[in-house]
Design a protein around this nucleic acid. Structure first.
Lengths: 146, 146
DNA sequence: TTAATTAAGGATATTTTTGTCCTCTTTTTT
DNA sequence: AAAAAAGAGGACAAAAATATCCTTAATTAA
């Protein structure tokens, strides 16, 4: 559904939200290891999330790393998609038609519409914090094994 | 959501289903024009759909072109996704985790599951014929304008 | 103040996806 | 039988996505 870059962005952000506070800031190496993503590529993605979009914050130097402000934790997951310029995945026509609309619907339109709406609602309603808290049991997982 | 290739595959197949019978077989040029896709690339995709997977049928030579058998028209739309090797889009973890399962759910799992199920059901239930018939009014559309 | 640590950023490489072009084969028409 | 009209298939090209590496800047600790 989403690109690798966006998958890493989601996983990394959720992990940082879980692990970070004023004192504790996971670094790139730790994040990439835990979420099972290529390190340098993940660095680029975290830059994207810190730079314009202010979803992730960072500090350099020893004991530096990445963290989320309380404000950032309250952002909808959708904001990560927007930061990765991939929110269109949820909004565009399933058949990829520019034309497709209520008045000029594609053959999938009527059937797909309610699902699309639920998808958007899910990503708009759920906050980063919500997902970070979703460790209801010890088996919830954010990476691929060891 | 899907790749360009799969979008073209869906549009082309629906168009062929609408336009074809024993006598009438739209050709590549017509198909590509109507569904607004790059001609030669569309040729490759139609080859994929004819070759192994037997979703689309074709005949060469003058008055040749593409058509769907009655049997093919009754296939679920899902079969097009499988032919394009993109059915995983619907089934895999939103966060891209191999691990993710009922016993080791990712943080989105519980919320996303019912939506995933609806998506799969939609593509498994709807047939190509269903979509081809979905011209309830004259404004239904399968390409991008003129 | 020097050394060490860590993110930022630029340049480059690799892979995948998307797309084109040309020749070959099949089929029909003349 | 020859010519024309299509799809089939291979080789190649371009663009985008994914990934790596190296240097610089910021910050902290010794």
């Amino acid at each position: 559904m989403f690109s690798k870059a966006t998958e890493y962005a989601l996983r990394a952000t959720i992990y940082i939200a879980r692990r970070s506070d004023e004192k504790n800031k996971p670094g790139l190496a730790e994040i990439a290891k835990v979420i099972d993503s290529p390190r340098s590529f993940t660095a680029k993605i975290l830059q994207q999330l810190t730079k314009n979009n202010k979803i992730v914050s960072s500090v350099r130097g020893p004991n530096g790393g990445f963290f989320l402000t309380d404000k950032a934790k309250k952002l909808p997951v959708y904001s990560i998609l927007k930061a990765m310029a991939e929110d269109e995945v949820l909004t565009k026509c399933v058949l990829g038609l520019k034309q497709c609309s209520e008045t000029k619907p594609c053959p999938m339109h009527a059937q797909y519409k309610p699902l699309k709406q639920q998808l958007i609602k899910l990503f708009e309603t759920k906050t980063i914090q919500d997902l970070a808290s979703e460790i209801t049991n010890g088996d919830s997982v954010i990476g691929n094994g060891k």
